[in-house]
């Protein structure tokens, strides 16, 4: 029936080794196939392109300003819980942003600016804990936990695989008198889904 045809074609597809132009394949199906693929590609590339067109424009912003904005996002505003000085509109945040720019203009580097504020406000001024000392714990946990979880998942999968697949293995229990029930299964499947009748042959019961 219908299921056989596409199969051939796919094995043909498989022989196309390089991931190069999808329209290399012949046949009406392949052609349509590639149209769909192309349109998808086109859309995505256009979108990405749109994002990228901003790149040359970014050069218009002085380098220091981009850097200052990056630093703004690493410093919390001390008087408003949960906001960085980039986000906050209070006076103190404005003054801190100003100080960041002054320091950069005087030639300070990113780390120096951060250190300056840590010395005055404590580490909690940093939006993320520093990757040193005890605070490494904050960073190590995800780095350890995630591979462990994935490894655990793989182990669990292996354990689930160890026994032979139950449904394909002979089910314990006698098969006496199964035929009438098999017939009923076929009948119910036919009634439930007329269009997708599974083809069942007499070879089915064992």
């Amino acid at each position: 029936m219908a299921g056989v045809l596409p199969f051939r074609q796919h094995s043909f597809l498989c022989r196309v080794k390089s991931p190069s132009p999808p329209f290399a394949k012949g046949g009406e199906g392949g052609f349509r196939h590639s149209i769909a693929a192309l349109s998808c590609l086109l859309l995505l590339s256009l979108l990405a392109l749109a994002a990228v067109t901003q790149r040359p424009a970014q050069a218009q912003t002085p380098h220091d300003e981009a850097e200052a904005q990056a630093i703004d996002r690493m410093l919390m505003c001390p008087v408003c819980p949960g906001e960085t000085i980039d986000q906050s509109q209070v006076e103190l945040a404005r003054q801190m942003r100003l100080r960041v720019r002054e320091m950069l203009a005087q030639g300070a580097g990113r780390q120096q600016v951060l250190d300056f504020f840590v010395a005055r406000y404590g580490v909690e001024i940093l939006a993320a804990p520093p990757k040193s000392g005890f605070n490494l714990v904050a960073w190590i946990f995800p780095a350890l936990a995630v591979p462990l979880a994935l490894a655990g998942g793989l182990l669990a999968l292996r354990a689930m695989r160890r026994r032979p697949a139950a449904e394909l293995a002979p089910v314990p229990g006698p098969d006496v008198g199964l035929d009438p029930f098999l017939a009923r299964v076929d009948q119910e499947l036919t009634v439930a889904a007329p269009s997708d009748v599974p083809r069942t042959g007499s070879s089915a019961d064992g």
Binding site: P78, E91, L92, Q95, R99, F117, R120, G122
Partner: peptide, 13 residues
């Protein structure tokens, strides 16, 4: 005016 003293002393409130 520029808040530089407040920043130097780490004033939070």
């Amino acid at each position: 005016v520029k808040g530089s003293i407040a920043i130097d002393y780490g004033v939070k409130g």
